[in-house]
Design a protein around this nucleic acid. Sequence first.
RNA 1: GGGGCCGUAGCUCAAUUGGUUAGAGUACCGGACUGUCGAUCCGGGGGUUGCGGGUUCAAGUCCCGUCGGCCUCGCCA
Length: 651
Amino acid sequence: MLAQRTVPLPGAILPTFPRPRQSKLPDPSSRRCIAPRPASPIILPQLALGRSKRFLRQKRNGGVLRTHTCGELRPEHIGQKVTLCGWVQNYRDHRGLVFVDLRDRYGITQIVFNMAFDDEMQTVARSLRSEDVIQVTGEVVSRSGNVNPKLATGEIEVVARELVVLNRSKRPPFEPSSPDLPNEELRLRYRFIDLRRPALQKAMLLRHRLTKATRDYFDRLGFLDIETPMLGKSTPEGARDYLVPSRVHPGCFYALPQSPQIYKQILMVAGYDRYMQIARCFRDEDLRADRQPEFTQIDVEMAFVERDDILDVIDGLVAHLMKELRGEEVSLPLPRYSYRDMLERYGTDKPDLRFGLELVDIGDIAAECDFGVFRKTVEEGGRVRGLNAKGAMEKYSRKDIDGLTDYVSDFGAKGLVFFRVKEGRLDSPVAKFFSETHHQAIIERMGAENGDLLFFIAGEDSVTSAALAALRNRLGKELELYDPNELKCCWVIDFPLFSWNEDEQRWDAEHHPFCYPVVEDLPLLDSDPGKVRAQTYDLVCNGCEAGSGSIRIHDPVVQQKVFGLLGISEEEAERRFGFLLEALRYGAPPHGGIALGLDRWVMLFSGDDNIRDVIAFPKTQKATDLLSGAPSPVDPHQLRELHIKVDLPGK
RNA sequence: GGGGCCGUAGCUCAAUUGGUUAGAGUACCGGACUGUCGAUCCGGGGGUUGCGGGUUCAAGUCCCGUCGGCCUCGCCA
């Protein structure tokens, strides 16, 4: 039988279809198309991911439009009468016979419409186009002889007996099944189409599972999930705030949280000694491939703990996630390295440990050679460091190396010296400035063999680190030195508390201003602040800063001292976050915590390198939402209520 | 704020050194077709080459500006 609404529709742009009457009727007996299992729950298998086999159970009620999903039917269902709903992914019109690939997020099922059964229905079936939404009732039959091995449901098909067009789609700007992706601008504008793509659905599912596994883990350990305000007070430093004007208090603004930092510390003072939250954070800074203006943190804080207690808890989380999401065992504890050590070996505090390619210092050799740049750099207190790209001699032409030279110049390197190792000697435009002894010394120091390609950068310590770290990552990728699917995590600890800000002639907090110094370094706060180590820790995964935290200052005196060194006066400190200082005066327990970037973790687990692909509704690099058009001007009357006048810069 | 890449049909792309009426695939529309699954076959419509200016006999192509997207340095505890 054909439902009333299935008359062919005129034109390309169609009005919204009313939902079929069945959906509004509570009486199941009016539904002729329901399969004969009214009391049993429908089991909807989620998209398979990893080795986990989890099932979502959905109670059948009188209002369902479908008996199964499009990913569910198997040979065991043959003979059953079923009702499916979904989107038309593809149609193959043979006139008397029409095939439709019906898609929902669970899979694809082939529907067959046969003119022999219903001529009128056939006319409607032939009018179906991509992304139309339909409801089909029919019988599950075997596809013996015509099995499609590409589909999980490929052994069966549904022979349609009833078709309801639930809604027509305009011609979609792109199709979810298309092998070549349209440009990202279009994908973001039509995000509702993009989100139909299996890749994004997979990412959303992974994100859900990661979030849930995280909550489960902390719940088991007795952590409380406590929400903190979105409308708050501007936090002391760091990123630019997103501001929200107050209507009730003319001229005053809330700030959206850069993180729940201060609130979670106050929760510790309040005695909620194990806190966690999946917290949305906002930072009004320029974007990157792995950075969005609003992002999500797994926020954690604990009281009566020392650094290693927190590291142990997060070690457990990492192991739990690896097990739950990838079925992998991780040996704990995760390795813990000092900041100094990482900077020396990898040039960065967030090394990618999936491969070696460690940095090597040849300052002593450089000091003796006749190559002016090297010798002079060392004389002036700089460093000469390099790395050995094993066996890469043939892989990089002179032109390629010029490209690398350009690349490292972005990081402040004035040049890139290279040597090809041939017949036990160094071959390079600058080789003549090095004696035979130097050649052999460098070869020995670098562990070089014939066919290797050595790179060196001379300059200030920080420049050699930054440039070589960047070069190392690039070489690691280009030379395929690691398995891109591997996840390798470590802790980096013992960061300095401060770094010197040359421009403003004062100390900056390396992490944030609430980090507790290493106790034995406390006296150095007065004598040599640059030497003070902080009780901070970064969780690093595949060269990505995946989490960062510290033991906090719970003593108002130490806190004031740190503010002083940061150039924050007592008055300013009181004004901006006096409420934290005040809280610390009322019995603050020793406490500390960490925040992990949830979006980045999903990226790491999914192997994506674009944060937008793990966020349902991301923003562009200019922080706009192409779907909604945000941000946008507002009605003048809204501004008047807020006592705000817009003063745009002239062009 | 700086550097780089990109913008041509609904979409993905092409267009020789600046040179004829800007093409192809796909999607869309019409027709044929009862076992397709990237269906096939026949026919058709579809373009302000992002926008504005300039150079030139001539601009999709070169130059300047601008808008938008992406990557990146600065920035982001």
